[in-house]
Each structure stands twice: as C-alpha cells, then as structure tokens.
Nucleic acid binder design. Sequence first.
RNA 1: GGCCCCGUCGUCUAGCGGUCAGGACGUCAGGUUUUCAUCCUGAAUAUCGCGGGUUCGAUUCCCGCCGGGGUCACCA
Length: 474
Amino acid sequence: MADTHVRTRYAPSPTGIPHIGNTRTALYAYLLAKKYGGEFLIRLEDTDADREVEGAAEKIYEINEILGLIPDESPTKGGSFGPYIQSQRLEIYRKYAQLLVDTGAAYYCFCSEERLKQLHENNQFAKYDKHCRHLTSAEIKKQIDLGAPFVIRAKMPETGFTTWHDLVQGKLSMPNSEVDDKVLIKRNGVPVYHFAVVIDDHLMEISHVIRGVEYIVSTPVHLYLYETLGWEPPVMAHVPLLLGPDKSKLSKRHGAKSVLGYIEDGYLSEAINNFLLYLGFSYKDNSDLLTLPEMVEIFDEKKIQRQNAIFDIQRLNYLNSQWIKRLPSEELFHRLSAFIPSDWPDEKVKQILELVKERMFTLRDFAPAAEYFFNAPTVSSESVLVQSGHSEEETKKWFNIAISTIERLSSTFTSENLHHELAAAQTTSGFSPKEAFMSLRVAISGRSATPPLFDCMVVLGKEETLHRLSKVFS
RNA sequence: GGCCCCGUCGUCUAGCGGUCAGGACGUCAGGUUUUCAUCCUGAAUAUCGCGGGUUCGAUUCCCGCCGGGGUCACCA
C-alpha cells in the first residue's frame, strides 16, 4: 500500500443527521488517509432529492468540524476533483451511462412501475426478471422514438462468482446469479447510488472505499462497473456495524444519537473520537487516552474487527471523565460555557471547576454540583443535627465555636488555615471529626457530599461561609 | 426464504496448535478521604456458541448445526 497514494472519502447522504455509528466510519476513513499521508474528502451523495432533509448537510460538516475530521476536499472547501455534490455532477453520470449502453454493459428498461410492483408482490425476494434485457434494437428504438420513459440497468453477468479481497473482511465472494440487474439511472435521469459512487470514486481517485458492511452485497455491481469501464477498482474496506445494547442494529430507538447529541449531553469531542476508535478496534488495552494525531499514529487497518460492536455508554463515560481530568483547565472552562448559567462569574466557575472536575463524567455534571456555591441552599436544622449526632443545644455551641474560629481568620482565609484551626477547635468540642465537619458541610451546602469542606469554604468566601453557618439555627 | 458475513468474561478486546485464556470498562471488596468523587490494591465473572473431525495435543485448522447480523428499491 505504500506505493499507492491514499485518498479516502466520507460520502454521507443529507437525509438526516448521521448517527454515531456512521461517524465512526468517517473516523476510520480519516485515520486511514492520514496514516498514509493522503487525503480525506467529503462528498455529498444527494441523488435522492425526495429524502433530502434541509440543513442535514450543514450538520454533517459540523460534526466533522467538531471531531477534527477536517477534509482536504469537500463541498464547502472545494478541490481539484469537484464538484463534491452529486446533484451537481449529473451530466458526468449521463455520459458514462450512455457509454455503458453503447458498449452493451447496460441496457434500457421500459418496464412500468406497475409491472415491477406486481413482480414484487408475486415474490418479495424476486430480482428483476430481466424482461428488457433481451429487447431487440428495433424494439428499443421504437420505444425511444415514442418517448417512452426508461431507466438504465446494468447487464450483470449471470454465471460465475465475483470475488475480491476486502481490507477488513478478507476474501469475499458472491455468486453472480444472486446479483440483480440494478438500475443505474432512474427514470428522472438521476443516477442511483451504485452508479454515482463508482463514477465519483474513480474520478476523484479514491484509493480506499471505507463503508459499512451493509454495502458488501452491492459490491459485485460496483466491481462490474469498474471492470466494464476499464477502471482499476479501489481497495474495499467494509467495517462492521454498531449495535444497540440488545444487539440489534443501532437505531434511534436505542437513543442512537448523532455526535451533535452527545456534545449536547456534555461529552467531549476527544472522548467521542477515542470511544469510536475503540469500538471495533484494538490498541493496547483500549483504555489509553489518544488525541486525533496519536490515533493517526497508531491506527492500523488490519486491526479493525470483523464483528459488530455493541455501543457501551459506560465506556464512553469513563473515557469522558478521563478526558475532563486531562484537559487544561482553561480549555475545559471554555467547553463548559454552554452548560452553565451565563451570570455565573468566570473566576468563581474556574475555582469550582478545579474542585469538581474530578467528580464529573460529563460537562452536564458541573452545574448541579456547583449550584449551591451561587445560590444559598435552604438548610433545615434537622438535616444538620442528623449529621452532628448531638442535641441542638450542643450543636449550636459547636457552630458558635466554629463561627468565632473562622472570624478570627482574616487575611489568612485559606484551606490550610481553616483546616488547622477548625481541627484544633473540633478536638476540644466533644464532637468527632465526622460529626463536626459533616454538620458544617451540610450547613454551608445543603448536601452531605461535596468537595473537601475547607476548599468549599474558601470558594464561598469568609462572609458567605459565616452567613450560611449562622443562618442554620437562627 | 436465497445469498453473504460474524461467534473468546456483561461490554471492548489480546491470543494466531501446547497460555494458570491476558488487559481495559463495568461489578464487588478493601485502603485513602470528616463526605462524595478521584486515586491505589485485591476479587469474582469466559467449560473460548454446540457437535463432530484433523492432530500426540485444539480457543486456534476443517465440516455440520445453532445463534447473531447484513442484504434482496427507479434509498443510500
């Protein structure tokens, strides 16, 4: 492979926002191209205008942008093999379709939709009966002259096998008798996927076709087209599917979101990339945190699995929590902006982030964990007494000691000093450390689980800490 | 149903004729911590889908079965 110039492509259809399994294929295509110093491009396969969803293309580009899967050539960026939108290449396809008809590799089919529908009703698994395959040239001319609508079908070989070496699946073989005479050009003159991919992949000099295993069965048609056109076919790499927890194909039903959905849920692009890489791939123990450039480095197409992988959110959570810890504070702070109220002061958020980030699995975990720093919680004296394990009288006394201890700390309101002074006070209070500090914790936060108590007090500030402490029994 | 692909702990996987079948996530236990989380340590979890072969020896090779998946559009 070292002697072929590698060019891969991600060829989505703008029929919706691609789910995460789809994006994994894009990742693999990107990694393969970059590993060999080649190009990665995006081509929009919009040959089915009816299914097109407005804005989908933009979302697709956005996903690649977010993950860093930046194309060298694309509809928006352009390139010397453009246009990269199939609906703008219709003339090109027609030219080659005509060529195929002229050389006898394809033929006109005048069958009505009703006839085809009938065929399907008779046998839902039936292939086209090749009715028009044997039309005489006189019959064809007559129909054409009549202005009869037609489609162009591939004249597939009827015997033998189509065999090829798949980069991830190994040797693959299909009996030609199983292959349908696929429609290449629709009645409206627009090519069908099978035709457009072949033409474009060749014209755009794609060296490796990376796509999901659902395309394995249509590969014989593609290979037939390459052969009759006299073109060298690209290397085929059919990657496995992503399955839901119930082992069925990942779908919306499983909450199969797009990358955009995961970003909204507070997952970092780094973690998503990392997660996607390890789903159906192996590198060490599949838990290393890898950046995109590092992935390019270690990527090995031979290590792509052949079995479908089940989407496991727990692993994504793990990877995300690790990336949250690893990201520089400033960067993490920026990513957090979409997940917090805009009126929370930056400096305070940053302080809290340092305390909270090792407790976060997603960016969404921050706001609930930081909320009480900004809005004083309502704390009942009962909830404090539960923690203190002493009578209200004794607890009040301890709180007064704590309050006056804190008041004595002036310019030295640090975690270390608080710890030192309050620990000393606690020793003579008759309260155990747990009783003493858990009651204070609940008093200032309203909860029994928070970051280290004294750190919280520092973030709160002396005034606010005293205020919350004295409020409990007032 | 035809054709094609796949089958190692719950999950992602290592393994490429002789291994105590290894790691990671998750789970459980312990340690650290005034709490939670992190972190550290340890443990459990796979008769390698089943049944036949081949072989001195099969998770590794072959066959059958079973199970799962894909596909059979003028959708991609």
